[in-house]
Structures are given as C-alpha cells and as structure tokens.
Amino acid sequence: MNNYNPITALILFFVITGFLFVLFRPVKGWFWIVKKNFKSNEKIIIEDILKQLYHFENSGNRVDMKTLVQVLDFNNSRIVEAIKKMTINDLIYFESDILKLTEKGREYALKIVRVHRLWERYLADKTGFSKTEWHDRAELMEHQLSYDETERLSAHLGHPKFDPHGDPIPTKTGKMANVNGVELPLLPVNTVGRITHIEDEPEVIYKQILAENIHIGSLIRVTENNPTRIVFLSEGEEFKLAPIVAANLTVAPIEKEVVLEDNIARLSNLKEHENAKIIGISKESRGESRRRLLDLGFVKGADISIDLKNPLGEPNAYLIKGTSIALRKDQAAKILIKKE
C-alpha cells in the first residue's frame, strides 16, 4: 500500500470497467463480434444466398450478381467463391446474368425458411423475447438446426402453419399455406379487411408498425388512401400510416357483407361504469399469456366491466365471471370487446 493513491485506484478501476464494457456490451461488444465472425463460414454464406434468391424469385424479381452483393453483408470475394461452389453443386444456375434456383436449391432454401419461421414461432410462443429480437435470433438459428432438430422443434410447437408475422411455415415436404390479401396501399377507401401479415423487414419500418400498436388479425376499414397517407379504423382506434409503412401490412379484403361495427373496441378503451362483452383475443397475444387469459375466463361472450381503477394508471382490475382480475394495459389492448 506504499504507492496507494485514491486517484490512481479510481483510474485503474474505470479503465478496467471500460475495457470490460467494450468487450462484453450487448450486441456490439468486441467479444460477440469476434465470435460471430468466427462462425460466419461458407455454409452460412451459401444458405443466405439461397434464402435471398428464394425471396426475390417469390416476389417476381430478377437477381444478378450486383444486387446480390448489395443485399448480403459479406466480403465480395467470399460471395463469388460461394456462388462458384453452388453452381458446381447444382443449387443455382445462370440464365444469361440472372441467378436462378434449381429444384434442389429451392428445396434447400425452403428448409432454411422453415427453420427461420419455426424459430420465430418458438420465440413468440415459448419465450419472453420481445418482437424486435425475433428476426435477428432466427437469422442465427436458421443455420444451426439439423433436420432432426427441426422436426423435433416443429412437433414441440404442434406443427404450426404460420409464423408470428403471418408468413406460412413450409412443412417438411415443402407444402405451404397461402397468405391471403394484398398490400394495404392497394385497397380502395371503405374496404373492410383483416390484417393477415406484418412484414418484419426492414427493421426501421417494422419498429414503426410496432410503435403504432397495430395487431395482426385485426379487422380494419380504410377511410383514406392517398399518396401522402393511408388512414384506417380498427378496434375503436384510428391509425395513420405513410404509404411506405402501410406497404408492409398485408390485408385480406372481406368479400362478404361484414359490418364493421363501431362499438367494437379494445378492452383498454373501456371506461368505468361501462359494460361490455368480449369478442375475442387478438392474435397478438400469444403462447402462455394467451392461454392464461383464456383460462381466466376472457373468452368470447363473457361480460366484462371495470372493477377497480388503479391509482397509478395501470393495471386496472376487471370484473369477469364473478372475479376481479387485474390486467396491464398492453394485455387489455389485445382483448376485443363490444360495448353495450
């Protein structure tokens, strides 16, 4: 302790903590980056190329080397090398300068898509990760699961048809359910429809949609549609979106004469002394939370009213089937009611 000095000690302390922070901070920590780069081998590049080609072909776009290099986050020479290998292994072929998937390549790509969407479904139903993390985690996992593991995962989840964004999950034989609907900006004013899909890429737009509290499975009615904005009513609230954001929502118009009643609302909009009946729980409520709500009696047709207002704003206690049960605002927003 001869050369002790509080300032030296403090400086030493902050240098060490700073170093540890730079090394291990979430996502951008050097340790994680090194770990990630270490793992990005050829297999991952090949699989990412297949997946990109698959998505491009599905949306009817043609891809040449230049666009491919732009969308992928890898070193150019490594991509070229991977493409070479993929042509030799009969996964892709060139039609003049356009890249195309062979039958075998398409099958492989479907397998990746299957793992990705299954994993998103798993994250949504069985874990507590927030929506914004699903995509990135699935991006990592899609390269890691073997065929058997994927089958076990699928069985564990009860072989689901759709991922949490509404995208169909290919079966192991490559069968896929259809997503009905068109992009929201294509719908004329006064169309009634149901949101069947919410695109989670690019992230910036997805985050905007999440911030608006737009729920998959909601019935909507378009009230305004012009190049500057699209406005629609849904569940007692009005949503205004820029067309570029709205284009990430897929809506299936409802042909039959369905009246979108005006007194339909979210439970979070219920006022004290109002009575209502539950219509259902939004698809946004998933996994354990959804089951728990159902078990507690938040089922179609049940009478509900506010029992107690919370002094701090939330949670409010609702009287349902003779019992007072408190729910937080975000939960109440996912329960649909019809006011009486």
Binding site: E288, R291, R292, L294, D295, L296
Partner: peptide, 8 residues
C-alpha cells in the same frame, strides 16, 4: 390451477 390445458 385455473385449468389443465396449459403447460405451466
């Protein structure tokens, strides 16, 4: 329990 259908 409220139910036997969930997995808690």
């Amino acid at each position: 329990t409220y139910s036997l259908l969930s997995t808690s």
